[in-house]
Amino acid sequence: MKILVPIKRVVDYNVKVRPLSDNTDVDLNNVKMAVNPFCEIALEEAVRIKEAGNADEIIAITVGKNESQEQLRTALALGADRAILVESDELLEPLAIAKVLAKISTEESPDIILMGKQAIDGDNNQTGQMLAELLGVSQATNASEVTIEGDVLKVTREIDGGLQTIQITKPAIITTDLRLNEPRYASLPNIMKAKKKELTVKPVTDLGIDVTKRVDVLSVELPPSREAGVMVETVDDLLEKLKNEAKVIS
């Protein structure tokens, strides 16, 4: 069984992102970049499935700029067997990314595509579901548990009211929630080995897919800031202020 893991290069989740001074976009100059946390979880799950003897090959793939090779090397160090970069100088929108991933999926025919539920840059939460639709396959989003029983996959999903379990059949797309697993760290020997693993680079222009932008970003601003609050000394002060000043309790 083959597993495809689409990953995205994003700003490290500890970085507080700010707009550029001309408000045309976010300021990504000299900020630390990393593998999107949800994609790390997807990769970890793929590695665990392989370690359990249920898969023989894991392919990490990203659609992005040349420097995304760095994140693919991380994926290789974490257990992917080979990697594909579909290189694009422009960052693409989810629908275009899904189309690129659909094209590669058709070539590679993975049994499972494991990916993040959302990328923490745009917080879109779209690509997995779009890819599932383009391929005409089933999906299980927000997975917190995956069990494989032959051709059938049982996935427990985190939904607003609690947990839902569904059954999907391969090929299928699973998107990961935070509690699916805790990703491992790459060991030094594995980082060294990753340098020798196969990483193929294909220009997006070779795929013949229309990736034209559909959405213009007109501006990026800071959210309205909150007025500075006050510190209260005692519980009595707090309750008094909530009753008489803020009038939110009676």
Binding site: V11, K16, V17, R18, P19, V26, I120, D121, G122, D123, V215, D216, V217, L218, S219, V220, E221, L222, P223
Partner: peptide
Amino acid sequence: IYAGSCIATVK
């Protein structure tokens, strides 16, 4: 976007 650190205006 970015966990609400920024607000984008999109068309």
